[in-house]
Design a protein around this nucleic acid. Structure first.
Lengths: 366, 366
DNA sequence: GCGCATTACTAATACGCATTAACGATCCGG
DNA sequence: CCGGATCGTTAATGCGTATTAGTAATGCGC
């Protein structure tokens, strides 16, 4: 006839000293003369089914106030099976020394939207080796700590991402990313925005428009061209290869001569895409200046994005702004939806048209 | 002879659906053919007393990798360990729309140092603008999820902070904060930096130097003045109230007349403090310009900090730079020390002297 | 080949809270 | 006055991990 429990009590040692730790629900319960469960129910806000008498509720709340009780978030999150944490992972440093290349504008929206939804943010850095030696090819697994994760930049390794997605871990990529089946993403609607700019120019009376773009296969570039061509088509203007000037080194290739040629051909408006370097716009800007174009009198210019910092003093270019904060917010919205088990939300975010001062009516034709 | 347990099993419902959730230690254990405790031991780093054979350790690590296991921070926290998470809490938005007012420069250092030490960062979005009422009086308690927390800005409510400190939660405040007993902080060593600037001017031959400061009791201001006066004293130069010009509205009070008066009295160098607004420096700058001073030929100027953005195009002021990234890094170092139960590290961070071009030898005296 | 120390691992908690089946009490209709 | 419904509360359990007492296996000296 053996005792079912002979062992001395294992487990963790109780508080080493009598130091006053913060109060627990159990202590509140004792003071209020109720059970711990009742305390939890009172504090947990009114849920369905649970009914608490007003008298009890007050006793509990009084005890809570008197003890200065605050819930332990770790315990709550353990019990609730979620932790209200959204991950933000960027392969490069999230806060590089050079502010220009940072994700700051996105983070503005990410933080706001996350806060509005009651989420906190966990920042993972790709470059860091990370806690328990989880470096190497499995570094991305660290993000599983959060309820879901946002990826910034185009360097996140595809196979790791695929693994996360396959495991049902909520992931959202900031920037279009079609090649990865099942990966949720949000991106700017460059097609519509490009179309809109062309429509604006066409509305001003321009009949021949040329796009200057860099030699790049990034979705952001091809989308802009796509929108540009679509805009021409819808306006009944000539499209085709002649309407697009593509160069790996526009600053060198976009000569004054070439620009004069276009002007002679009846081209009255030029559109450049925005890129990291801003080379397309800079080349167009310089060539126009060199030829002595008075913009927008002699010709109109438009920029599909924002000017690079070194050209931001000049006149505000007609075009559109990439809504980076809104993109960040949209990404959080989608991530929150995925975490909640809902459908992904709308991935495309509209770009705001920017009237600017570099586009006007084409010069009168004699 | 009654069964000790008749009740049906209460408690929480099991996983509602068969959706793949994150792997647990138990699953790793099953895959590796060991017990959950062994997994915990292997992952917990080698502690005293626990010995694991290399073979078992490898089996476990393989299973961990193969399943993509990462520990649940809430659970490890609850089990009274650490979770390699450091909190970052700012009363205002961490990423304000206006980059100028952001904590970005600090975050650069915080991220680097945290990454280097294997910590990830939790950004508590607590007090951000759009917060859906989540910012109760106990909002600060959320930070307890992390191993420790960094506080940015001077708006963190004192009583809440005190509560955290009293409970033994590791907290570091970025910026001097003496009035709160027991609060650890890191701050720039404005006293030494101010002294150094004065020493530099004295070394150039200046004998009468005046400090222009705003009417502000912030530690950053009083420290600068303290250092300034100390510098005068060590150089054997006249200090006292006459050496400090204090004004709530320097742009209005620092007239050309007053400046001329100083010059006539033999003052050859002027020092201004940096503040949010940069008013002291701006006033000094404008007055000097108005009087027609050729700096540094006619008089020397120095700035205890960096110029405001609108004056950043001018000549680089002699003075010092506030080492914001280093401050962030130092804060993380101290926080890590506190988390590890060690003593707080050195709170003061040296400011880098900036030679600049606005200080030179005083004009020859005839 | 018997104690005893060491090694390698496991069983059994405990952490603080949320959840839920169950239970006593009261109320109600017939 | 009895079966059922409703209300208010509680006991019991689980979340995932860290910790520690205990144990089986092995090595060692005499």
């Amino acid at each position: 006839m053996e005792e079912p429990r002979k062992r001395a009590r294992p487990g963790r040692t109780p508080a080493p000293t009598g130091r006053t730790s913060r109060p627990r629900q159990a202590e509140v319960a004792r003071l209020a003369g109720v059970s711990q469960a009742t305390v939890s129910l009172v504090l947990g806000g009114r849920k369905q089914g649970a009914t608490i008498s007003e008298e009890t509720r007050q006793k509990v709340l009084d005890a809570v106030r008197s003890l200065g009780y605050v819930p332990d978030p770790a315990a709550s999150r353990l019990a609730a099976a979620r932790n209200n944490l959204l991950g933000v992972f960027s392969f490069t440093s999230t806060f590089p020394t050079d502010v220009q290349h940072s994700y700051y504008p996105f983070l503005v929206g990410v933080e706001q939207e996350a806060a509005a939804r009651g989420y906190d943010l966990v920042l993972f850095t790709g470059s860091s080796t990370g806690g328990a030696g989880a470096a190497g090819p499995h570094a991305l697994n660290r993000v599983r700590l959060a309820d879901g994760c946002l990826f910034l930049g185009r360097h996140a390794p595809a196979d790791e991402l695929r693994r996360l997605v396959a495991d049902g871990f909520p992931v959202v990529h900031l920037g279009r990313r079609d090649e990865l089946e099942g990966l949720a993403w949000v991106g700017a609607d460059y097609v519509s925005a490009g179309k809109e700019v062309v429509a604006h120019l066409a509305g001003l009376g321009h009949r021949r428009i040329v796009l200057v773009r860099e030699d790049d296969e990034a979705p952001a570039s091809t989308d802009r061209e796509h929108g540009f061509l679509k805009g021409l088509e819808e306006a009944g203007l000539p499209g085709g290869p002649a309407a697009v000037f593509r160069s790996a080194d526009p600053e060198h290739d976009l000569t004054a001569e070439r620009l004069r040629g276009w002007l002679d051909d009846g081209v009255t408006a030029f559109v450049a895409e925005e890129t990291d370097t801003g080379d397309a716009w800079r080349a167009l800007h310089n060539a126009a200046h060199f030829v002595g174009i008075d913009c927008p009198r002699d010709a109109s210019l438009a920029l599909l994005g924002s000017p690079p910092p070194d050209l931001s003093d000049g006149p505000m270019p007609t075009g559109f702004d990439i809504p980076r904060p809104q993109l960040g917010a949209a990404a959080v919205r989608m991530l929150a939806a995925l975490v909640a088990g809902e459908q992904a939300t709308e991935p495309l975010v509209a770009c705001a048209f920017r009237p600017g001062t570099t586009a006007g009516a084409p010069p009168a034709h004699h």
